[in-house]
């Protein structure tokens, strides 16, 4: 119970990062393809980052509250998001999503299209091109997006307290625990949580940086155009290596 905020924070951050990762990549890929309305869609998708988190939380509460549209539908299925861990995950996801989406979009747009054409020339399927050509090439950008997303989700406060409340043992993450400790005048407890959250954040960033540095090396090594398909098995059958 005493250390539940650590578990809850990590659970929320991991879940939110995973959802943001999948959605962010998928949506970024679609947006890059858009011709018209690109800036409008982009603006809407980035909105949660620009708005104060409390406002995002308020909108989420409007949506998921019993009076809200989604909340009404969920209530019919006897599911409630407000004051639950699911609410905390949703809040953290919405707030951290733009970071993943933006990074992925930037990486996709900067990717050398010639490599995609090269892939098509040798008859690779679009799916294969995405996973074997685009993704490895965009790795550094995507990883930095992942780091930002995780960091944002771990520290989320404003939207979370609005949607998920601040219930010890149930929705009280570390950020909320710090707020509670300060609000009730418990300095020592606040300092303790601050120290723990810093330690966890530093450790995560450190590990991710090591990982990023390693992949950057491998991307560089594979940068010479032909070498992207150095894995023979990835080539369609019957293609000879020139």
């Amino acid at each position: 119970m005493v250390f539940s905020p650590i578990l809850l924070s990590i659970e929320v951050a991991v879940c939110a990062t995973s959802v943001s990762f999948v959605l962010g990549l998928f949506i970024a890929k679609q947006v890059v393809k858009l011709r018209r309305l690109k800036s409008l869609v982009d603006g809407i998708l980035t909105l949660p980052l620009v708005l104060p988190p409390t406002v995002v939380g308020f909108f989420l509460l409007l949506t998921f509250g019993r009076n809200g549209l989604l909340g009404d539908m969920l209530a019919a299925m006897d599911v409630s998001v407000v004051f639950t861990l699911a609410g905390a995950i949703i809040a953290a996801t919405v707030v951290s999503f733009p970071l993943m989406y933006r990074s992925a979009r930037g990486a996709f747009e900067q990717f050398d299209r010639d490599l995609i054409y090269a892939g098509r020339t040798i008859g690779m399927s679009e799916t294969k091109i995405f996973w074997r050509v685009i993704m490895p090439g965009c790795k550094p950008g995507i990883i930095s997006g992942l780091v930002l997303t995780f960091a944002r989700a771990l520290g989320e406060f404003g939207a979370t307290i609005m949607l998920a409340g601040n219930i010890p043992g149930k929705t009280q993450t570390m950020s909320l625990a710090i707020y509670s400790a300060v609000a009730s005048g418990n300095r020592e407890k606040a300092y303790m949580w601050v120290a723990i959250i810093m330690l966890i954040s530093f450790t995560c960033m450190f590990l991710m940086n090591i990982f990023a540095a390693r992949t950057r090396k491998s991307v560089k090594a594979g940068a010479a155009a032909g070498s992207i398909i150095k894995d023979e098995k990835s080539l369609p059958e019957g293609t000879a290596i020139l």
Binding site: F58, L61, G65, R66, N67, G68, V82, M162
Partner: peptide, 10 residues
């Protein structure tokens, strides 16, 4: 107050 107004299960 806002949470109660928006129908949070309080």
């Amino acid at each position: 107050q806002t949470q109660i107004e928006e129908g949070a299960p309080a």
